[in-house]
């Protein structure tokens, strides 16, 4: 039972990590209609900046600043130089262009930082473990990720529901042309939203750097899972992304934790291992396919 609780917590924590990435992706898609394959690259840029600065200064606060600045800066540059020209285009053009950006960022980081994965550890005050479940020391940093994710979710909910910017974002998502006609600078709005998405990706990179390998290509590994989250939740919906992320995190974690064991009740151990691992790998895709078959627009469409 305790083990189940712990796995539940693990699933939630992984889900929140995914949410940090998915929130930016879904905002950019929902409001600007842009499919940004390079979102994972911004995540990577954030993680690299954090690890590099933490390595030189040893300060987590400076690392956090660097991650946000680097990802935000890269995001602004990308928006200004490329995305801005593609708002009226076909989704496919955006896919091709951001695919090009993805290749570029991977190789740029490899050229600048080398191919050795970088090192980063959590700050000392988050480095320990807390026994929130009796007998199970849970890493404090993972709790910090959980807290960050929840804070971001709350912040975004407030931003979108209560502020003028949020109102424009909501309006821009549904009736872009009319918002423009009413005298709102749509360009500026889009730039802001894209920068916000990039900042969220940078934040995700910062929080991921101490627990993942900071390496070239780290963005793509998690990008696909992030897209799954966004689609399950419903494109453009931050609430949907939150629900989708938790669902994907739980399904993925619980499948890995319990499916092989359950299969062993039925099959021979070797068959169960192979089958279990295969099933666990495909679990989130199975989930997505099921959701889309029954709710073709996702769980909470915007």
């Amino acid at each position: 039972m305790l083990l189940f609780l712990e796995q539940l917590l693990n699933g939630l924590q992984y889900g929140v990590m995914l949410f940090l990435l998915a929130a930016g992706l879904t905002l950019v898609f929902g409001i600007m209609g842009v499919i940004n394959l390079a979102h994972g690259s911004l995540f990577m840029v954030g993680a690299y900046a954090a690890a590099a600065v933490a390595g030189h200064t040893g300060s987590f606060a400076l690392a956090a600043l660097a991650a946000l600045a680097a990802a935000g800066g890269a995001g602004l540059a990308v928006e200004f130089l490329v995305i801005r020209r593609l708002y009226d285009r076909d989704h496919l053009d955006q896919v091709l262009a951001t695919f090009g950006l993805l290749l570029f960022f991977n190789e740029l980081v490899a050229t600048l930082a080398g191919r050795t994965p970088l090192f980063m550890q959590p700050p000392a005050w988050l480095g320990g473990a807390v026994e929130i479940i009796p007998g199970v020391p849970y890493p404090t940093f993972r709790l910090a990720i959980l807290a960050t994710g929840v804070a971001v979710a709350a912040g975004l909910a407030f931003l979108i529901a209560r502020t003028r910017l949020g109102m424009l974002i909501r309006a821009g998502a549904t009736h872009r042309a009319i918002v423009g006609a009413l005298g709102v600078d749509i360009r500026l709005l889009f730039t802001l939203v894209f920068a916000l998405g990039a900042l969220l990706a940078g934040l995700a990179g910062l929080m991921a750097a101490p627990i993942l390998a900071v390496q070239v290509g780290m963005g793509e590994q998690i990008l696909i899972a992030t897209f799954v989250v966004v689609v399950i939740g419903g494109l453009g919906s931050v609430r949907g992304a939150f629900v989708g992320a938790l669902l994907v995190g739980l399904v993925d974690t619980l499948a890995r934790a319990f499916v092989p064991g359950l299969l062993k009740q039925v099959f021979a151990p070797t068959t169960a291992d192979a089958l279990g691992a295969g099933l666990a790998s495909a679990a989130i895709y199975l989930l997505m396919a099921l959701v889309l078959v029954f709710r073709p627009r996702g769980l909470l469409p915007a």
């Binding site: 083990l3 796995q7 693990n10 992984y14 199970v136 991921a208 627990i211 934790a257």
Partner: peptide
């Protein structure tokens, strides 16, 4: 126990919990 992880897995907390148990 033999545990097989996913090819592109980035989070191992489920496996670590099994090890602990």
């Amino acid at each position: 126990e033999e545990i097989y992880t996913k090819l592109d897995q980035t989070d191992f907390s489920a496996e670590l919990a099994r090890i602990r148990a």
